[in-house]
């Protein structure tokens, strides 16, 4: 084959992938537009949402606790290492709390959630599609969007901010333990500096807004990919991978945008 044909083929393949990506974005938009009217109705069957929330909780709780604790402890060690050079180690509590509430809590929780619960969500819905369970519901006059997708979407959306709060809290406790037990800092100073320096309106609410947005986006991507999956085992496994990749990228991209707006607003 001549080299030009090779380049042409590569460009063509690139174009096709780009087109496929744009088409997927379009389908995802249409999907959410169809889902939104079902979202209110899903609360008539709140039991289903609670059930899903419980399932996601079981899936992600431990991983959030453990990661939160470690991230907090690492932050304490690293933060101390830098602060001590300027004799500012009394600000360690503040540093850790700001880093966790503004950034690490929401972002890491979202990434972990996407990998653990988001992928499971896609696989579950995709498998239900592949085994004709969704079609079966349709034929039983049950709307799968209302019965299957909406409760899972809500559960994911609600779970992410809750888990981010837990992550942040556990992280701060982990940092406190390291600061007091390992680094020999004064516990009272750790807390009082944090209390004085963390603003509820900017930092806490800002972090919360981020995790609400992340929860929405991850749940959207996860249920969409499951619903849109090719109804084969290969199709479902690809969709699962796509959920993790796209939602992680979306979380990081959105974090950058939101951070830029929030810092300018300060």
């Amino acid at each position: 084959m001549n080299p030009l044909a090779g380049i042409g083929g590569a460009v063509g393949a690139l174009g096709r992938r780009a087109l496929a990506g744009i088409a997927r974005l379009g389908r995802a938009t249409l999907f959410i537009a169809r889902l939104v009217p079902s979202l209110g109705g899903a609360w008539k069957r709140a039991r289903l949402i609670v059930q899903q929330l419980y399932m996601t909780g079981v899936l992600t709780f431990v991983i959030i606790l453990v990661s939160g604790a470690f991230v907090g402890m690492i932050l304490a060690l690293q933060g101390y290492n830098t602060l001590v050079r300027y004799d500012a180690q009394s600000s360690l509590g503040l540093l850790v709390a700001l880093a966790l509430t503004r950034e690490l809590g929401p972002v890491l929780t979202a990434l972990l959630f996407a990998g653990r619960a988001g992928s499971a969500l896609t696989a579950e819905i995709g498998l239900m599609k592949a085994t004709e369970q969704l079609a079966g519901m349709e034929m039983m006059a049950v709307d799968p969007l209302l019965r299957v997708v909406a409760p899972r979407f809500w559960a994911g959306w609600i779970a992410v901010p809750l888990l981010a709060m837990i992550f942040t809290a556990v992280g701060i406790i982990g940092a406190y333990v390291v600061a007091v037990a390992v680094l020999g800092l004064d516990g009272g100073v750790f807390w009082s500096q944090m209390q004085a320096g963390v603003s509820v309106t900017n930092d806490v609410i800002g972090g919360l807004i981020k995790s609400v947005v992340f929860g929405f986006v991850i749940s959207w991507i996860a249920v969409f990919e499951g619903y849109d999956a090719k109804p084969t085992s290969e199709g479902v496994s690809r969709a699962t991978t796509r959920t993790v990749v796209s939602s992680s990228l979306a979380v990081l991209g959105l974090d950058f945008i939101m951070t830029a707006f929030m810092l300018r607003g300060l």
Binding site: L127, M128, T131, E132, Q133, A135, G136, M137
Partner: peptide, 9 residues
């Protein structure tokens, strides 16, 4: 009745 039964697993 679906070809694949389509029971809810």
């Amino acid at each position: 009745l679906f070809q694949s039964s389509a029971l809810l697993t």
